[in-house]
Design a protein around this nucleic acid. Structure first.
Length: 198
DNA sequence: ACATTAATTCGCT
DNA sequence: AGCGAATTAATGT
């Protein structure tokens, strides 16, 4: 979801800046805000019983988070952590609901956005169920690409570390490294130094 | 130049 | 493929 910044301000959105590693909200908290990123990056994660991190998603510029939880009465299933200096527009749940009531066009867009996420989440779950590392990796790349397809359609750079990719797929770093090498050899992906192009 | 962080390799299981 | 640790490469101050 990407709403014009001026519109967000006119409905009570306020800019907030977070530093790297700042906790934006915590798992188990009651969701209170809509967030839209102006610049920087945010990860949504959880930790399993052994303390291993699992990253649900990493969001960047013009992407939103927190919004799916505003429509239902559930506690947040994830933490949101800033990965770098990140500027967001933050809007309270009440203001957000008010905005959707007054702007049916945005409400419709929200539906499209949520449907799209739901759709790609299903594909993601399917791929993650695969026992083949290359398949899981490819599933993640398709998933990430689905968020970015507005500007770059061909071979866009994955701005993630190997460790982050591992935490997103549930694979080990070494496995990611080995698999990336194989996929580069079979031309499924392209490498620009360490950056993965897909 | 030194410290920190990430990527890759290695040896063992 | 997973784990721990060591080595090498890239980045930051």
């Amino acid at each position: 979801m990407n709403i014009d910044e001026g519109t967000l301000h006119s409905f009570g959105g306020e800019n907030v800046i977070y530093n790297a590693k700042d906790l934006i909200f915590r798992e188990g908290e009651y969701p209170q805000y809509y967030f839209q990123i102006i610049s920087g990056k945010v990860k949504l994660n959880t930790y399993n019983e052994n303390g291993k991190e699992f990253i649900q998603n990493i969001l960047g510029k013009n992407q939103s988070f927190g919004d799916p939880l505003l429509f239902i009465e559930k506690l947040s299933p994830t933490n949101a952590i800033s990965l770098q200096t990140t500027e967001v527009v933050r809007m309270s749940k009440n203001n957000f609901m008010d905005m959707l009531k007054k702007r049916p066009d945005l409400s419709l867009e929200m539906n499209i956005c949520l449907s799209q996420r739901l759709y790609y989440n299903i594909l993601m779950v399917n791929n993650m169920a695969s026992s083949d590392a290359a398949q899981r990796l490819k599933g993640l790349l398709d998933y990430l690409k689905s968020y970015h397809d507005d500007d770059c359609r061909h071979s866009f750079p994955i701005e993630l570390t190997r460790q982050q990719i591992a935490d997103l797929t549930g694979l080990r770093v070494e496995t990611v490294i080995r698999t990336v090498r194989k996929m580069a050899n079979s031309e499924i992906i392209r490498l620009d130094g360490h950056r993965i192009l897909y």
